[in-house]
Amino acid sequence: MPNHITSVIEIREGGILLAASGSHVIRVLGALKETPLLALGGAKEDMVSRVPDSVYEGYYNGSLSGPQQDPAAEPFNPRVASLFITRTGEPLFLQRDPAGEIDSEDSETDDDAS
């Protein structure tokens, strides 16, 4: 089945192109569950990224990459930068998979973007 991963901003403001007929599975990052609005605060020295440096390292050097980066596609899809770090620190990539070739992962993760 065609399956796609998008973000709440992408689907709300731009929508996504469902380039296949039938049912689609669309996972919207940043909108799955109600999440508490978290206050920011405290000392800068206590601020840490949601993921360890090694995750970014992998993204920058290519060892962590998304399932779909197709520069020949018209249009270039996804039309937003594709790496997304969930609130729980999981790196996920937005994707368009009209042929349903990419294995779907468990979508029970709390995917809030905050």
Binding site: I9, E10, E13, G14, G15, Y60, N61, G62, S65, G66, Q69, P71, F76, P78, R79, V80, A81, S82
Partner: peptide, 23 residues
């Protein structure tokens, strides 16, 4: 339309862009 930044390495990809409606 949106402006984006595209890089060629480690693979051709879009790394930043304006929001879809430029909001």
């Amino acid at each position: 339309n949106q402006l984006g930044l595209r890089v060629s390495s480690p693979s051709t990809s879009l790394v930043m862009n304006e929001r879809p409606m430029g909001l």
